[in-house]
Amino acid sequence: MSTATRSLPRTIGAHAILITYTVIALFPVILVVMNSFKSRAGIFGAPLTPPTPKTFDLIGYATVFGQGDFFHYFQNSLVVTVASLFFVLLFGAMAAFALSEYRFRGNTLMGLYLALGIMIPIRLGTVAILQLMVASGLVNTLTALILVYTAQGLPLAIFILSEFMKQVSNDLKNAGRIDGLSEYTIFFRLVLPLVRPAMATVAVFTMIPIWNDLWFPLILAPSEETKTVTLGAQLFLGQFVTNWNAILAALSLAILPVLILYVIFSRQLIRGITSGAVK
Protein backbone atom coordinates (compact mmCIF):
# COMPACT_ATOMS: atom_id res chain seq x y z
CA MET A 1 0.00 0.00 0.00
CA SER A 2 1.38 3.41 -0.81
CA THR A 3 1.85 5.91 1.97
CA ALA A 4 -0.56 8.27 0.26
CA THR A 5 -3.49 6.00 1.03
CA ARG A 6 -2.37 5.10 4.54
CA SER A 7 -3.10 7.65 7.21
CA LEU A 8 -3.55 6.58 10.79
CA PRO A 9 -7.05 7.97 11.43
CA ARG A 10 -8.31 6.42 8.24
CA THR A 11 -6.81 3.05 9.06
CA ILE A 12 -8.38 3.14 12.52
CA GLY A 13 -11.71 4.25 11.07
CA ALA A 14 -11.72 1.49 8.47
CA HIS A 15 -10.80 -1.14 11.01
CA ALA A 16 -13.39 0.08 13.49
CA ILE A 17 -16.12 -0.21 10.88
CA LEU A 18 -14.97 -3.64 9.73
CA ILE A 19 -14.62 -4.96 13.27
CA THR A 20 -18.05 -3.69 14.23
CA TYR A 21 -19.53 -5.36 11.18
CA THR A 22 -17.72 -8.63 11.90
CA VAL A 23 -18.93 -8.64 15.50
CA ILE A 24 -22.53 -8.01 14.46
CA ALA A 25 -22.35 -10.68 11.76
CA LEU A 26 -20.72 -13.26 13.96
CA PHE A 27 -22.70 -12.56 17.13
CA PRO A 28 -25.65 -14.90 16.44
CA VAL A 29 -23.35 -17.65 15.22
CA ILE A 30 -21.17 -17.43 18.31
CA LEU A 31 -24.24 -17.31 20.52
CA VAL A 32 -25.58 -20.49 18.95
CA VAL A 33 -22.31 -22.36 19.20
CA MET A 34 -21.65 -21.17 22.76
CA ASN A 35 -25.06 -22.09 24.06
CA SER A 36 -25.03 -25.45 22.38
CA PHE A 37 -22.43 -26.49 24.96
CA LYS A 38 -24.53 -25.42 27.94
CA SER A 39 -27.19 -27.02 30.06
CA ARG A 40 -30.78 -25.89 29.68
CA ALA A 41 -30.57 -23.88 32.88
CA GLY A 42 -27.34 -22.36 31.66
CA ILE A 43 -28.91 -21.29 28.38
CA PHE A 44 -31.81 -19.53 30.03
CA GLY A 45 -29.97 -18.29 33.08
CA ALA A 46 -27.15 -16.47 31.31
CA PRO A 47 -27.47 -16.77 27.54
CA LEU A 48 -24.62 -14.35 26.86
CA THR A 49 -21.89 -15.97 28.95
CA PRO A 50 -19.62 -18.68 27.59
CA PRO A 51 -20.02 -22.12 29.13
CA THR A 52 -18.54 -22.34 32.63
CA PRO A 53 -17.64 -25.66 34.32
CA LYS A 54 -21.00 -25.37 36.09
CA THR A 55 -23.12 -24.81 33.01
CA PHE A 56 -21.08 -26.92 30.56
CA ASP A 57 -23.19 -29.74 29.24
CA LEU A 58 -23.12 -31.92 26.13
CA ILE A 59 -26.73 -32.98 26.54
CA GLY A 60 -27.69 -31.22 23.32
CA TYR A 61 -25.19 -33.14 21.24
CA ALA A 62 -26.10 -36.36 23.02
CA THR A 63 -29.75 -35.83 22.09
CA VAL A 64 -28.93 -34.99 18.50
CA PHE A 65 -26.81 -38.04 18.02
CA GLY A 66 -29.12 -40.27 20.07
CA GLN A 67 -32.45 -39.22 18.69
CA GLY A 68 -33.46 -39.22 15.10
CA ASP A 69 -31.10 -40.23 12.39
CA PHE A 70 -29.06 -37.09 12.34
CA PHE A 71 -26.13 -38.47 10.50
CA HIS A 72 -28.51 -39.50 7.77
CA TYR A 73 -30.04 -36.02 7.60
CA PHE A 74 -26.59 -34.62 7.20
CA GLN A 75 -25.89 -36.96 4.40
CA ASN A 76 -29.12 -35.91 2.67
CA SER A 77 -28.28 -32.23 2.99
CA LEU A 78 -24.81 -32.81 1.69
CA VAL A 79 -25.98 -34.90 -1.26
CA VAL A 80 -28.61 -32.34 -2.21
CA THR A 81 -26.27 -29.37 -1.85
CA VAL A 82 -23.31 -30.87 -3.63
CA ALA A 83 -25.36 -32.37 -6.44
CA SER A 84 -27.33 -29.15 -7.01
CA LEU A 85 -24.14 -27.14 -6.88
CA PHE A 86 -22.54 -29.42 -9.42
CA PHE A 87 -25.42 -29.12 -11.84
CA VAL A 88 -25.80 -25.36 -11.35
CA LEU A 89 -22.12 -24.83 -12.09
CA LEU A 90 -22.01 -27.25 -14.99
CA PHE A 91 -25.18 -26.14 -16.78
CA GLY A 92 -24.76 -22.52 -15.76
CA ALA A 93 -21.25 -22.40 -17.17
CA MET A 94 -22.27 -24.18 -20.35
CA ALA A 95 -25.23 -21.91 -20.96
CA ALA A 96 -23.11 -18.87 -20.18
CA PHE A 97 -20.47 -20.04 -22.65
CA ALA A 98 -23.03 -20.56 -25.38
CA LEU A 99 -24.60 -17.16 -24.75
CA SER A 100 -21.32 -15.30 -24.68
CA GLU A 101 -19.45 -17.19 -27.39
CA TYR A 102 -21.86 -18.01 -30.17
CA ARG A 103 -23.88 -15.63 -32.28
CA PHE A 104 -27.23 -17.22 -32.98
CA ARG A 105 -30.77 -16.05 -33.54
CA GLY A 106 -32.49 -15.19 -30.28
CA ASN A 107 -29.26 -15.03 -28.31
CA THR A 108 -30.17 -11.84 -26.44
CA LEU A 109 -33.74 -12.96 -25.88
CA MET A 110 -32.55 -16.27 -24.48
CA GLY A 111 -30.14 -14.47 -22.17
CA LEU A 112 -32.94 -12.26 -20.91
CA TYR A 113 -35.24 -15.20 -20.42
CA LEU A 114 -32.62 -17.06 -18.43
CA ALA A 115 -31.84 -13.98 -16.33
CA LEU A 116 -35.52 -13.39 -15.57
CA GLY A 117 -35.38 -16.10 -12.93
CA ILE A 118 -33.25 -13.83 -10.76
CA MET A 119 -36.21 -11.50 -10.28
CA ILE A 120 -38.97 -14.07 -9.88
CA PRO A 121 -38.75 -16.16 -6.70
CA ILE A 122 -39.07 -19.83 -7.47
CA ARG A 123 -41.29 -20.30 -4.42
CA LEU A 124 -44.15 -18.62 -6.26
CA GLY A 125 -44.33 -21.78 -8.29
CA THR A 126 -44.42 -24.14 -5.33
CA VAL A 127 -47.87 -25.49 -6.01
CA ALA A 128 -47.11 -26.21 -9.63
CA ILE A 129 -43.79 -27.75 -8.69
CA LEU A 130 -45.49 -29.99 -6.16
CA GLN A 131 -48.07 -31.10 -8.72
CA LEU A 132 -45.27 -31.78 -11.17
CA MET A 133 -43.35 -33.84 -8.64
CA VAL A 134 -46.45 -35.79 -7.66
CA ALA A 135 -47.22 -36.47 -11.30
CA SER A 136 -43.70 -37.66 -11.98
CA GLY A 137 -43.54 -39.67 -8.78
CA LEU A 138 -40.60 -37.72 -7.41
CA VAL A 139 -42.17 -36.67 -4.10
CA ASN A 140 -40.03 -37.70 -1.15
CA THR A 141 -36.91 -38.16 -3.23
CA LEU A 142 -33.70 -36.18 -3.10
CA THR A 143 -33.92 -35.93 -6.89
CA ALA A 144 -36.91 -33.60 -6.50
CA LEU A 145 -34.88 -31.27 -4.31
CA ILE A 146 -31.85 -31.39 -6.58
CA LEU A 147 -33.97 -30.52 -9.62
CA VAL A 148 -35.66 -27.60 -7.88
CA TYR A 149 -32.42 -26.21 -6.49
CA THR A 150 -30.68 -26.53 -9.82
CA ALA A 151 -33.45 -24.50 -11.41
CA GLN A 152 -33.29 -22.01 -8.58
CA GLY A 153 -29.54 -21.51 -8.85
CA LEU A 154 -29.18 -21.34 -12.63
CA PRO A 155 -30.34 -17.78 -13.43
CA LEU A 156 -27.81 -16.01 -11.21
CA ALA A 157 -25.07 -18.45 -12.23
CA ILE A 158 -25.67 -17.82 -15.94
CA PHE A 159 -25.88 -14.08 -15.41
CA ILE A 160 -22.59 -13.83 -13.52
CA LEU A 161 -20.68 -16.40 -15.54
CA SER A 162 -21.60 -15.06 -18.96
CA GLU A 163 -20.22 -11.66 -17.97
CA PHE A 164 -16.94 -13.30 -17.01
CA MET A 165 -16.80 -15.54 -20.05
CA LYS A 166 -17.08 -12.54 -22.34
CA GLN A 167 -13.78 -11.39 -20.92
CA VAL A 168 -11.88 -14.57 -21.74
CA SER A 169 -9.50 -13.82 -24.60
CA ASN A 170 -10.96 -14.61 -28.02
CA ASP A 171 -7.48 -15.24 -29.33
CA LEU A 172 -7.02 -18.05 -26.82
CA LYS A 173 -10.21 -19.80 -27.92
CA ASN A 174 -9.28 -19.30 -31.55
CA ALA A 175 -5.79 -20.69 -30.94
CA GLY A 176 -7.49 -23.78 -29.53
CA ARG A 177 -9.72 -24.06 -32.59
CA ILE A 178 -6.74 -23.85 -34.92
CA ASP A 179 -5.01 -26.54 -32.87
CA GLY A 180 -8.03 -28.74 -33.44
CA LEU A 181 -9.56 -28.68 -29.97
CA SER A 182 -13.27 -29.41 -29.87
CA GLU A 183 -15.63 -26.79 -28.50
CA TYR A 184 -16.02 -28.97 -25.39
CA THR A 185 -12.29 -29.12 -24.82
CA ILE A 186 -12.03 -25.37 -25.32
CA PHE A 187 -14.79 -24.92 -22.78
CA PHE A 188 -13.51 -27.34 -20.15
CA ARG A 189 -9.77 -26.94 -20.55
CA LEU A 190 -9.27 -23.32 -21.59
CA VAL A 191 -12.26 -21.27 -20.50
CA LEU A 192 -13.36 -22.88 -17.25
CA PRO A 193 -9.95 -22.63 -15.52
CA LEU A 194 -9.83 -18.94 -16.39
CA VAL A 195 -13.25 -18.20 -14.88
CA ARG A 196 -12.58 -20.24 -11.75
CA PRO A 197 -12.82 -17.23 -9.43
CA ALA A 198 -16.26 -16.46 -10.82
CA MET A 199 -17.25 -20.11 -10.45
CA ALA A 200 -16.21 -20.03 -6.80
CA THR A 201 -18.26 -16.88 -6.23
CA VAL A 202 -21.29 -18.47 -7.84
CA ALA A 203 -20.73 -21.65 -5.83
CA VAL A 204 -20.80 -19.77 -2.54
CA PHE A 205 -23.89 -17.77 -3.49
CA THR A 206 -25.70 -20.90 -4.65
CA MET A 207 -24.70 -23.18 -1.82
CA ILE A 208 -25.82 -21.23 1.24
CA PRO A 209 -29.52 -20.84 0.37
CA ILE A 210 -29.74 -24.50 -0.62
CA TRP A 211 -28.17 -25.75 2.58
CA ASN A 212 -30.35 -23.49 4.71
CA ASP A 213 -33.61 -24.07 2.88
CA LEU A 214 -36.54 -25.37 4.88
CA TRP A 215 -39.33 -24.70 2.43
CA PHE A 216 -38.78 -27.25 -0.30
CA PRO A 217 -37.62 -30.14 1.94
CA LEU A 218 -40.76 -29.60 4.02
CA ILE A 219 -43.03 -29.62 0.98
CA LEU A 220 -41.35 -31.96 -1.44
CA ALA A 221 -39.40 -34.39 0.72
CA PRO A 222 -40.54 -34.49 4.33
CA SER A 223 -40.19 -38.27 4.74
CA GLU A 224 -37.81 -39.66 7.33
CA GLU A 225 -35.68 -41.07 4.51
CA THR A 226 -35.15 -37.76 2.75
CA LYS A 227 -35.10 -35.22 5.59
CA THR A 228 -32.39 -32.60 5.44
CA VAL A 229 -30.63 -31.14 8.49
CA THR A 230 -32.73 -27.98 8.65
CA LEU A 231 -35.86 -30.06 8.50
CA GLY A 232 -34.48 -32.59 10.95
CA ALA A 233 -33.75 -29.87 13.48
CA GLN A 234 -37.48 -29.04 13.51
CA LEU A 235 -37.90 -32.35 15.32
CA PHE A 236 -36.85 -30.64 18.51
CA LEU A 237 -39.11 -27.66 17.98
CA GLY A 238 -42.25 -28.84 19.73
CA GLN A 239 -45.58 -27.12 20.00
CA PHE A 240 -45.35 -27.06 23.78
CA VAL A 241 -41.78 -27.80 24.69
CA THR A 242 -38.78 -26.99 22.61
CA ASN A 243 -35.55 -28.81 23.17
CA TRP A 244 -33.23 -25.84 22.86
CA ASN A 245 -30.10 -27.82 23.68
CA ALA A 246 -30.71 -30.16 20.79
CA ILE A 247 -31.67 -27.41 18.36
CA LEU A 248 -28.60 -25.36 19.14
CA ALA A 249 -26.39 -28.44 18.85
CA ALA A 250 -27.97 -29.40 15.54
CA LEU A 251 -27.53 -25.88 14.18
CA SER A 252 -23.92 -25.74 15.33
CA LEU A 253 -23.24 -28.99 13.55
CA ALA A 254 -25.01 -27.74 10.45
CA ILE A 255 -22.58 -24.86 10.18
CA LEU A 256 -19.62 -27.20 9.77
CA PRO A 257 -20.12 -28.60 6.26
CA VAL A 258 -20.89 -25.20 4.70
CA LEU A 259 -17.86 -23.83 6.43
CA ILE A 260 -15.71 -26.54 4.91
CA LEU A 261 -17.16 -26.03 1.44
CA TYR A 262 -16.70 -22.29 1.83
CA VAL A 263 -13.05 -22.70 2.75
CA ILE A 264 -12.50 -24.88 -0.31
CA PHE A 265 -14.12 -22.38 -2.65
CA SER A 266 -12.54 -19.31 -1.15
CA ARG A 267 -9.12 -20.86 -1.64
CA GLN A 268 -10.04 -21.32 -5.30
CA LEU A 269 -11.08 -17.70 -5.33
CA ILE A 270 -7.73 -16.49 -4.11
CA ARG A 271 -5.76 -18.86 -6.30
CA GLY A 272 -7.75 -17.73 -9.31
CA ILE A 273 -7.02 -14.11 -8.64
CA THR A 274 -3.29 -14.60 -8.18
CA SER A 275 -2.57 -17.09 -10.97
CA GLY A 276 -1.02 -15.78 -14.21
CA ALA A 277 -3.58 -15.00 -16.88
CA VAL A 278 -3.17 -14.91 -20.63
CA LYS A 279 -0.82 -12.04 -21.06
Binding site: S169, L172, A175, R177, I178, P193, L194, G276
Partner: peptide, 20 residues
Protein backbone atom coordinates in the same frame (compact mmCIF):
# COMPACT_ATOMS: atom_id res chain seq x y z
CA UNK B 1 -13.28 -26.93 -43.73
CA UNK B 2 -12.70 -26.37 -39.98
CA UNK B 3 -9.64 -24.28 -39.03
CA UNK B 4 -7.61 -27.24 -37.81
CA UNK B 5 -7.92 -29.01 -41.16
CA UNK B 6 -6.98 -26.08 -43.38
CA UNK B 7 -3.25 -26.55 -43.04
CA UNK B 8 -2.78 -23.14 -41.47
CA UNK B 9 -1.18 -21.83 -38.30
CA UNK B 10 -1.87 -18.52 -36.67
CA UNK B 11 0.08 -16.24 -34.36
CA UNK B 12 -1.98 -13.80 -32.34
CA UNK B 13 -1.31 -10.33 -31.05
CA UNK B 14 -1.99 -11.41 -27.47
CA UNK B 15 0.13 -14.57 -27.88
CA UNK B 16 -2.83 -16.71 -26.75
CA UNK B 17 -0.68 -19.38 -25.14
CA UNK B 18 -2.44 -22.01 -23.09
CA UNK B 19 -1.77 -20.81 -19.55
CA UNK B 20 -1.94 -24.26 -17.96
Amino acid sequence: TPPAKRGIAMVFQTYALYPH
